[in-house]
Write a protein that binds this DNA or RNA. Structure first.
Length: 845
RNA sequence: GCCGGGAUGGCGGAACGGUAGACGCAGUAGACUCAAAAUCUACCGGGGAGACCCGUGCGGGUUCGAAUCCCGCUCCCGGCACCA
């Protein structure tokens, strides 16, 4: 067989290599260079001849090194993308870097403390270079001609542009918001950075601080975000987002206050309104001061101050006993005019609903605990079915279920819930409240507006200015980008260098031309990742953030893969952003990603999360040096279901390495003496093995079941090795099987498949071939072995013609010696034949 | 507490309601070797001499037939958590 030269490998090396068998270290870099040279991964986005498939995998933060988790996320995704391409699609599979973020800035701050000079920009760019080099060794089909890094002004200027458009539409706004403030590092911390109420790095007690902050109005889209129709997303992710949005239906009810005015409360149980025996305000509620009487003032103020000192985390600590103080003020229960006391307690959150609740201790666990603690009245107004009448004085827990309304004026005897379409007490009370102007139907969400301000340096500057004459003014579009200055000195305190950067802050008001100050807050980095997939399609576009034609042709993204840890934040923001820019008229799609698949987490050998501290980190570079990229890829796919992740088993990869060596030997080594002749039966067995593998691997890759795809390839290798013989190796069926094996291996072990493909003398890249079709004829067998059960237990096996009819099968089954024993003396009640599988004879004695 | 997901050999895991344990790891025996490694071959859930019996977290049920479907539990993992 002719063996055309494999590119860039001198013949001498080649023959030496051949003697050594499978040497991935020799073949992998060669093919990586060849693919790069031939431009195999550069996609023609304008190609209209094939089905387009945008296959996206979440871009990484440039942490400095690719770890095995990146390989676990990206190489199976690559296999799925390669599979799509072989199935005929024009696949766009880009990669870039989510390059803004805290770690790089923290490194700069820490360096500043040591008196050293590290700049996040320099550090990040360096890390991107390192990681790009490491990425090349994966053998993935990333189209690097369209990469991007979000920290570059060419990218983030469009963050600013989107921000301005959102601001124009009223979707970006500034309001006072409570944040976690670290007094030592002098910055706001994300919730994840607050551990047990203390700043992660400084160890300082985090304070709740009210600060003016920029927000996006994601809550405007709450209802639309609850709609997942048309999306092929894991149930788990949809549920998590649904819970996060937390839609609650109920009523808003106004309570008049003795001190004047009213306080609005939200409740999901307006049917319990007659049982509201007190009101509770959050400590931050604006009316606290005005309802408090003078004799209670010092106590209330002390309580409010104490609450302000505590972090939200501490306030919500599990099992914490309820605290609160009486304000001295009273409100009027609007349904019957009863006067009820007003309390302040930190179990009421200012950020939810209206920051005030009507407490119904008889029917709400939290209110019940509070009432008992402080000796407040418990008044049952819903009587559950089938139990003794509730008594507020002796109840030991709240009754939160349904029942019959009582002590509720006109509603006595009304059932609370809706039974079989009948309107229940909840709906009836709401209508009654609306008729009287006391309250109204209201939907509340747990979701809060997206706080995008960060008092940090390494992010996108928010393009707003503050002018003494004009107030808050947006930067002009033509002045973008507002460039993040790089001539900055990092403070050991951690304070953003922008706050002391005079040249950055001093600006001209775009409105009046007078002096103005620039906003020094930067944007949350989730902003960067909320639209990056549009930018990949035209990363160099300078007249707008996106290329509308390409976006129309290529989005929504057909397949998106990434870690489950982004189930809420990134994926929810991305959906919101897509809807927002749709409403800005830029795109027409409603959703960013049609099909979503999540991979699990790869753990250390000890089953724990990999960390330097534990010393259980597996370095992919070491593995590649030792076993080759293909072995690492195949093992990561083989380890188990992709969405489950699992512990790294250093012995496990050895099994996959052995498999790859066997594949090499199977195809490259001459057949030994002996082995089966190329009989009709052997040929049929071989073709059946190969085409079964085609069917199974196709199905598995379609369904992201990489583990069973690899197992199926191992099965094929085993079958071929058993059948391999001198006479069969001459047969066309052997060639066919080798060809199929290589095509099926191509997405999983791209280098090995390519090398052997060329060694077998096939033209062109294996990766540009069509995915094989199953020959149904080859799957057929002449005979079938059936299991014969008697009363559901296996008692024998029979071999019959594959197309034998039921009567023939049953006769053969009953004649089987062991089966006959069990039939003796009994009465045959039923005969079940599952074609090609089994026979079950039901006998009673 | 609420919402998801899970529990199968010594281990990772397979299994359209139809032969439980594919594939691999580890292990046992053998071949090759002076020996070892590598490689190859066979075995590899438990009990039993055997026919067989038992076996997919636990208890019920549906079915000719259940790891798979239904009901009720236990435990583990993940997310959310005083959201009125």
């Amino acid at each position: 067989m002719t063996r055309p030269d494999v590119p860039t490998a001198p013949d001498a090396d080649r023959s030496a290599e051949r003697d050594r068998g499978y040497v991935p270290q020799a073949i992998e870099p060669r093919w990586q260079q060849e693919w790069e040279r031939s431009g195999q991964h550069r996609v023609d986005l304008e190609d209209g001849s094939r089905e387009k498939h945008y296959f996206l995998t979440m871009f990484p933060y440039p942490s400095g090194n690719l770890h095995v988790g990146h390989w676990y996320a990206e190489t199976p995704a690559d296999a799925a993308a390669r599979f799509r391409r072989m199935r005929g699609a024009n696949v766009f599979f880009p990669m870039g870097f989510d390059a803004f973020g805290l770690p790089a800035e923290n490194a700069a701050v820490q360096a500043a403390r040591r008196g050293e000079d590290v700049h996040p920009a320099r550090l990040t760019r360096e890390r991107i270079r390192t990681m790009t080099g490491q990425f090349a060794r994966m053998g993935a089909m990333f189209d690097w001609s369209r990469t991007l890094a979000t920290c570059e002004p060419e990218y983030y200027r469009w963050n600013q542009w989107f921000f301005l458009k959102a601001y124009e539409k009223g979707l970006a706004y500034r309001k006072e918001s409570y944040v976690n403030w670290d007094p030592v590092d002098r910055t706001v911390l994300a919730n994840e950075q607050v551990i047990d109420g203390r700043g992660e790095r400084s160890g300082a007690l985090v304070e709740r601080r009210l600060m003016p902050q920029w927000h996006f109005k994601i809550t405007d889209y709450a209802d639309e975000l609850l709609d997942f129709s048309g999306l092929d997303w894991p149930e788990r992710v949809r549920t998590m987002q649904t819970n996060w949005i937390g839609r609650s239906e109920g009523a808003e009810v106004a309570f008049e206050i003795d001190a004047g005015g009213e306080i609005r409360t939200f409740t999901t149980r307006p049917d319990t309104l007659w049982g509201a025996t007190f009101l509770v305000l959050a400590p931050e509620h604006p009316r606290v001061a005005t309802v408090t009487t003078d004799d209670r003032r010092s106590e209330v103020e002390a309580y409010v101050a104490e609450a302000a000192r505590m972090s939200e985390l501490d306030r919500q600590a599990e099992g914490r006993e309820k605290t609160g103080v009486f304000t001295g003020g009273y409100a009027t229960r609007p349904v019957d005019g009863a006067r009820i006391p007003i309390w302040v307690a930190d179990y009421v959150l200012v950020t939810y609903g209206s920051g005030a609740v009507m407490a119904v201790p008889a029917h709400d666990e939290r209110d019940f605990a509070f009432a008992r603690r402080f000796g407040l009245e418990v008044a049952p107004v819903v009587q559950p079915h089938g139990v003794a009448p509730l008594d507020g004085a002796t109840m030991t827990e709240a009754w939160t279920g349904g029942g019959t309304m009582m002590a509720s004026g006109p509603f006595d005897g009304t059932p609370t819930g809706t039974e079989l379409g009948e309107e229940g007490g909840i709906a009836k009370v709401i209508r009654w409240l609306e008729e009287r102007g006391i309250g109204e139907r209201k939907v509340t969400y747990r979701l809060r507006d997206w706080l995008i301000s960060r008092q940090r340096y390494w992010g996108t500057p928010i393009p707003m200015l503050y002018c003494d004459a004009c107030g808050t003014v947006p930067e002009r579009e033509e002045n973008l980008p507002v460039v993040l200055p790089e001539d900055v000195a990092f403070m050991p305190t951690g304070e953003s260098p922008l706050k002391s950067h005079e040249a950055f802050q001093a600006a001209t008001c775009p409105s009046c031309g007078g002096p103005a100050r620039r906003e020094t807050d930067t944007m949350d980095t989730f902003m960067d990742s909320s639209w990056y997939w549009f930018r990949y399609l035209a990363p160099d576009a300078i007249d707008g953030p996106i290329d509308r034609n390409r976006v129309a042709a290529w989005t929504p993204v057909h397949t998106y893969t990434g870690g489950i840890e982004h189930a809420i934040l990134h994926l929810l923001y991305a959906r919101f952003f897509t809807k927002m820019i749709r409403d800005l008229g830029l795109i027409s799609a409603d959703e960013p990603f049609l099909r979503l698949r999540n991979q699990g987490m790869i753990l250390g050998e000890d089953g724990e999360k990999m960390s330097k501290r534990r010393g259980n980190v597996v370095d992919p570079d070491d593995l590649v040096a030792r076993y080759g990229a293909d072995a690492v890829r195949a093992y990561l796919m083989f380890i188990g279901p992709w969405d489950q992740g699992g512990p790294w088993n250093p012995k496990g990869i050895e099994g996959v390495v052995r498999f790859l060596h066997r594949v090499w030997a199977l195809i490259e080594d001459p057949a030994r003496e002996g082995g089966p002749d190329a009989t009709e039966e052997a040929v049929a067995d071989l073709r059946r093995a190969a085409h079964t593998a085609v069917a199974e691997v196709t199905d598995d890759l379609e369904g992201f079941r990489f583990n069973t795809a690899v197992a199926e390839l191992m099965t094929l290798q085993n079958a071929m090795a058993k059948l391999k013989s001198r006479s069969l190796a001459e047969h066309a069926a052997w060639d066919e099987s080798v060809r199929l094996l290589l095509l099926l291996l191509a997405p999983i072990t791209p280098h090995l498949a390519e090398e052997l493909w060329h060694r077998r003398g096939y033209d062109g890249s294996v990766h540009l071939q069509s995915w094989p079709e199953v020959d149904e004829e080859a799957l057929r067998t002449a005979t079938a072995e059936l299991v014969v059960q008697v009363n559901g237990k296996v008692r024998g096996r029979i071999t019959v013609d594959a197309d034998a009819d039921d009567a023939t099968v049953l006769t053969a089954a009953k004649e089987e010696a062991n089966v006959a024993r069990y039939l003796e003396g009994g009465t045959l009640r039923r005969e079940i034949v599952v074609p090609g599988k089994l026979v079950n004879l039901v006998v009673s004695s």
